[in-house]
């Protein structure tokens, strides 16, 4: 493989998670945190970063150990690795940012069962070199964080009238409380998926017209 091809493959692995294979909007993975903890922008960001840490660390380890882990027990081994990093995140958040830890509650521990993380280990890290796996994990988790913020920021602005806890509107603004309640998560996600699908379909149509 030439160096140029190599580089283009690297950037491809990194970029695909951000847009083309975005874990939330395209693969529809990680729905549990995407709906449950996106009621404020700061919670969305914290969950995104926690997931990034777990996904990147697990991918490094799984990729390094890919020839050692016996195929028959690979899923169990991945879960052990993922659960270890999730617990590290859980303890660290409780120690350094107790308020965020309190807000995210049980959803930190539930990162273990985020399909996005196990999915990347099985589909990518277990078959590729460390460097590529890190890029893939970074791209995917940044795509996830981006999606979390896409849901969280409008929910906080509409539902609480603030952004990152800073009030945006005057006293006269009546918050749309429904947006920070669970239904708000479904509304927001529904709108975003609609937008994404509309955009991709339009692009495909345009491409077809150009081809013809």
């Amino acid at each position: 493989m030439t160096e140029l091809e190599n580089r283009s493959q690297s950037s491809e692995e990194f970029l695909k998670g951000l847009w083309k294979e975005n874990p939330v909007f395209i693969s529809v993975l990680g729905m549990c945190p995407a709906l449950a903890v996106t009621n404020t922008a700061i919670n969305s960001l914290a969950m995104g970063l926690a997931t990034t840490f777990v996904l990147v660390c697990s991918s490094i380890l799984v990729s390094l150990l890919r020839s050692i882990i016996p195929k028959q027990v690979r899923i169990t081994a991945y879960i052990i690795i993922i659960a270890t990093f999730v617990t590290v995140v859980d303890f660290s958040l409780a120690a350094f940012t107790p308020t965020i830890h309190k807000e995210l509650g049980a959803f930190i521990a539930l990162i273990v069962v985020n399909c996005l993380i196990l999915g990347r280990q099985e589909a990518f890290a277990s078959k590729n070199k460390v460097g590529l796996s890190v890029l893939d994990a970074l791209g995917m988790s940044l795509g996830f964080t981006f999606a979390m913020l896409c849901i969280g920021i409008p929910r906080e602005i509409l539902g609480s009238g603030s952004l990152f806890n800073m009030p945006l509107f005057g006293e006269s603004f009546e918050p749309w409380i429904v947006m920070i309640l669970p239904p708000g998560g479904f509304f927001m996600l529904g709108f975003l998926l609609l937008g994404f699908n509309w955009y991709t379909q339009r692009k495909e149509k345009n491409a077809k017209i150009l081809d013809a």
Partner: peptide, 11 residues
């Protein structure tokens, strides 16, 4: 035994 060992070490 290899499988048990692998998971044991991981744990």
């Amino acid at each position: 035994i290899v499988l048990i060992l692998a998971l044991g070490i991981a744990g």
